[in-house]
Simulated assay, not measured.
Amino acid sequence: MMAKRRFELDWDNLPEEMSLYFLDLIQHRDISNQVAQLFQVHHESPQLLLIKDGECILDQSHGEISVEDTLVEIS
């Protein structure tokens, strides 16, 4: 929850057209496995995946999660 709260503090800096989704993948392990397989990432929690044009272009977890890095990737 700490990583989510820290990210939420900077949500206003994200472009309006960027959709954000919070998935509780610990409660839904089947979805977690599908996401990991589809985007070829190792599941961690908490984790931020930035998906652009159907590909995962940024994969961060725990203390690495930042709006600043996300903004760099989408520019």
Results as ranks from 00 to 15, higher is better:
residue 43 H to M: 13
residue 64 E to Q: 09
residue 8 E to M: 13
residue 10 D to E: 15
residue 13 N to A: 14
residue 38 L to Q: 09
residue 26 I to K: 00
residue 26 I to M: 13
residue 29 R to L: 12
residue 21 Y to W: 04
residue 55 E to H: 05
residue 43 H to L: 08
residue 12 D to R: 10
residue 51 I to L: 13
residue 10 D to R: 12
residue 4 K to T: 03
residue 37 Q to A: 14
residue 40 Q to I: 02
residue 59 D to K: 01
residue 5 R to N: 05
residue 30 D to E: 15
residue 60 Q to H: 03
residue 44 E to F: 03
residue 15 P to D: 02
residue 64 E to M: 08
residue 44 E to T: 03
residue 14 L to V: 02
residue 30 D to Y: 07
residue 8 E to F: 01
residue 36 A to F: 02
residue 22 F to C: 05
residue 29 R to C: 07
residue 41 V to R: 05
residue 73 E to I: 10
residue 35 V to E: 03
residue 50 L to A: 03
residue 59 D to V: 03
residue 22 F to P: 00
residue 39 F to P: 02
residue 74 I to N: 04
residue 20 L to Y: 04
residue 67 V to L: 09
residue 66 S to H: 05
residue 43 H to T: 12
residue 32 S to G: 14
residue 18 M to Y: 05
residue 21 Y to V: 13
residue 67 V to T: 14
residue 53 D to H: 08
residue 70 T to G: 11
residue 19 S to K: 06
residue 5 R to T: 03
residue 28 H to T: 11
residue 53 D to G: 05
residue 42 H to I: 14
residue 40 Q to S: 14
residue 38 L to A: 14
residue 2 M to R: 12
residue 54 G to K: 03
residue 29 R to V: 09
residue 12 D to K: 13
residue 32 S to D: 12
residue 2 M to Y: 14
residue 25 L to F: 10
residue 25 L to D: 05
residue 41 V to M: 10
residue 74 I to K: 11
residue 74 I to H: 09
residue 57 I to F: 13
residue 16 E to W: 10
residue 16 E to R: 15
residue 37 Q to E: 11
residue 6 R to A: 14
residue 73 E to A: 15
residue 28 H to G: 05
residue 40 Q to T: 09
residue 27 Q to T: 11
residue 70 T to V: 09
residue 55 E to V: 01
residue 73 E to N: 13
residue 26 I to Q: 10
residue 19 S to I: 13
residue 67 V to Q: 14
residue 51 I to D: 12
residue 2 M to G: 11
residue 42 H to G: 12
residue 37 Q to H: 13
residue 74 I to G: 10
residue 46 P to H: 02
residue 44 E to H: 06
residue 54 G to N: 07
residue 38 L to K: 14
residue 29 R to Q: 15
residue 12 D to C: 10
residue 11 W to Q: 12
